[in-house]
Amino acid sequence: MDSEKKKKMNRRTFLKGAASTAIAGSAALTTGCKGKGLLGSSEAIALEFQEYFKKHYRLMTQTERDETIARLERIAKLKQDVDIDIDSTGPQENVLYGYAFNVTRCEGYMECVKACVKENNLDRASNTQYIRIFEMEHGQMSPDQGDGKYFHMVPKEGHFYMGVQCFQCNNPPCVKACPTKATWKEPDGLVVVDYDWCIGCRYCMAACPYWGRRFNWNQPQVPKEKITKKQHYLGNRRRVRGMMEKCTFCIQRSRKGKVTACVEACPTGARVFGNLLDPDSEIRFVLDNKKVYRLKEDLGTDPKFWYFID
């Protein structure tokens, strides 16, 4: 009995001591930092704490979305000292994004991959890339037979190049596989991820027949000066370790009327992007006048990404 009491006392005193030293220590640390006082860091902690209690993106009202965006922008300012602009533009009426890739024109320069990494704030440490370009011999059809790791002068004789990325399927298997409904198809056809709702189970990665999804094994590293500041909540905003991400046809650009970063960067004009529901659009011209095919069409995923030849 006596020993128990002693123990209890001991623990209490220990906890008291620990708490006081922790407070003193953190105070000393934070006040020791130049520029950022105790208030700054506690504000970030408070904001991050509030972030845990937000809803799924699709269930939020516009005011709730604006609130979380304001918090995320403030956190970025406090923690990384960057002024980002997160946007939550919704899908437009009568717009369905489609993409066509000219297999004849692509020369394998990989400017698209470089532009994509920059635009979408992809992890530089692990070299995450949404796009993969496969170098294939004439006569090959499927990218599994191609070489995705080439690094030599391009174009190489007797070869052609085929770019693969997320195809934004109309019947996406990744969406069906997700146990938390963290990924879904938007009305304009983009398959997006709510990063805060993703639990990192990677079922979607396994379900995707096109290798369109990427997993963050570590905290993505992007140098501060290279962060793209125009962001979208469902697109290129900051991701953390253990969540899935994917190509969203640069949702932050396409919903503002811009072409995706890969299309803008392509030096050969092999990439065509546009509205499938506009009968005058370029993508519709390609579908109407060119020989097009889709990858693994027999799977019934109904991708909105066509390959065509001149």
């Binding site: 533009t89 437009q92 009568n94 717009v95 369905l96 489609g98 109309n170 019947n171 919903r255 503002k256 009327g257 509205n275 499938l276 529901l277 506009d278 009968p279 005058d280 519709r284 579908l287 109904d302 909105k304």
Partner: peptide, 24 residues
Amino acid sequence: SQEGVISRIKKATLKVDKTKQVDT
């Protein structure tokens, strides 16, 4: 079941006002 992309494309024959496809 939801209709496929191809049938949606084939149905979309009406002209779209190109200046009003996005808000910006």
